[in-house]
């Protein structure tokens, strides 16, 4: 099923929460409201005509100029061999949205990574801890305004100290 068809199915099923569909993009995408994302994903996963059984990729992008963080879901269906991209915009100050871990287990670690690197909170996540950075790290490195700390546990991190 193509992006327009998937969008129509979603529109018919959900009265609110399903936004615009960009079907001319290289990877056609649908914008979803944060509050609706878990229910939309559940529907996309379970519906026999859609059967998006694979969360191929989940990532976050910091759009600082728009004061938004966008969480992007690349979905793929092994039975139907079709794909769709979902995009959820959350405010940069208080980024929070429901987890989709209950739909795809793969989301567990991907959401932990987004939490770690971009500071997005996933409500209902079973184990929302940092994944890649040290537990006591301050800040979220993939944010556009992240400033590298000058030292970490007494280790100087400046370029000058490394080149000396």
């Amino acid at each position: 099923m193509d992006a327009t068809g998937i969008h129509e199915r979603l529109k018919a099923r959900f009265e609110v929460g399903v936004g615009e569909c960009n079907s001319t993009a290289k990877d056609p995408c649908i914008t979803i409201d944060p509050a609706a994302i878990a229910a939309v994903c559940r529907f996309l996963h379970d519906d026999p005509d859609l059967r998006f059984d694979c969360l191929s990729n989940q990532s976050g992008v910091d759009y600082k100029a728009k004061e938004q963080i966008q969480v992007v879901y690349h979905l793929y269906s092994y039975p139907h061999r079709h794909r769709i991209v979902l995009k959820v915009d959350v405010p940069r100050e208080t980024p929070a949205l429901p987890t989709v871990e209950g739909v795809w287990k793969a989301a567990n670690w991907m959401e932990r990574e987004i939490f770690d690197l971009l500071g997005v909170t996933f409500d209902g996540h079973s184990d929302l801890r940092r994944l890649l950075m040290p537990e006591d790290w301050i800040g979220h490195p993939l944010r556009k305004d992240f400033v590298e700390p000058e030292e970490y546990h007494g280790i100087n991190t400046s370029r000058e100290s490394l080149l000396r």
Partner: peptide, 16 residues
């Protein structure tokens, strides 16, 4: 590049 995300095979294999 504004953003580059690399989703790898070992990442999901490790999580299972």
């Amino acid at each position: 590049p504004y953003r580059c995300k690399i989703r790898t095979g070992s990442f999901s294999a490790m999580s299972i």
